[in-house]
């Protein structure tokens, strides 16, 4: 059904989404934790910054990333090889692009748990990191699952940013959404159908997971 080039694009997409999700969680958990607990006055500024990819045209984000990741960009300046048009570049782009989809569910989950379970943990001798790992994260599990799935699914569908910073290099930056675009451009609708259907079904199944997880939500028993 799918030709080898499309399979390769799909496989690359899944790798990109998986790696990005992992990095997103590593970055998103402390960020969301801090946002949920901090009383800093400039907290809203950081929240707005993280939410930016929700409203910004992906091309704008992609353009600035291209400048940042390209040769003679700031990253090149500090010694990192130019990352534009590479898989690594895509990962960086995806992480920034999908950050709000991961931070917001996590932040909501942490806020909903409230300070009490962590206070209880502290009075029982748990240091803050211990309380985060043994109390907050297990109680935030539905939010954690939402965040992971949304981050993953959103990265699957990424197009504009990839186009700007990744281009269309098979096996390196040619992800499924780009491949679909190519097929449509060359009027190969059958191939476009095949790949689109896979993404459609995959995304739907992932969202089913999210909404099911939200059902079984429980935080604290009073």
């Amino acid at each position: 059904m799918l030709n080898p080039a499309d399979l390769q694009a799909l496989w690359l997409t899944l790798q990109l989404a998986a790696l990005s999700t992992l990095l997103l969680l590593l970055l998103g958990i402390p960020l969301a934790w801090w946002l949920a607990r901090s009383r800093a006055r400039w907290r809203f500024a950081l929240e707005a910054l993280i939410a930016l990819p929700l409203v910004l045209p992906p091309t704008v984000l992609g353009f600035y990333l291209l400048l940042a990741l390209g040769s003679r960009g700031p990253l090149d300046f500090i010694g990192l090889a130019p990352l534009a048009f590479s898989f690594k570049g895509l990962v960086i782009g995806s992480v920034i692009y999908s950050l709000p989809f991961v931070v917001q569910p996590l932040q909501n989950a942490f806020e909903r748990i409230g300070p009490r379970p962590l206070e209880v943990a502290a009075t029982l001798g748990a240091r803050p990191l211990d309380a985060l790992l043994t109390v907050a994260l297990p109680l935030a599990r539905p939010g954690l699952l939402s965040a992971a799935v949304l981050g993953f699914a959103h990265t699957l569908g990424e197009f504009g940013v990839v186009l700007m910073i990744g281009g269309n290099i098979p096996g390196e930056t040619r992800v499924a959404s780009i491949a679909i675009y190519e097929h449509v451009e060359s009027l190969d609708y059958a191939a476009a159908h095949g790949l689109s259907l896979v993404l459609l079904v995959l995304s739907f199944v992932l969202l089913l997971l999210v909404f099911r997880a939200r059902r079984g939500d429980r935080v604290l028993s009073l």
Binding site: E119, V120, A121, A126, L139, L220, S221
Partner: peptide, 28 residues
């Protein structure tokens, strides 16, 4: 707080919902 040798009984029982009774008691 976590270094003070105390226990605190809150107004609500505030048990950890993700742990069973025995594990709640074992937490501290």
């Amino acid at each position: 707080t976590w270094q003070r040798p105390l226990s605190y009984l809150f107004q609500e029982s505030s048990l950890f919902a993700h742990l069973n009774v025995l594990d709640n008691v074992r937490y501290g």
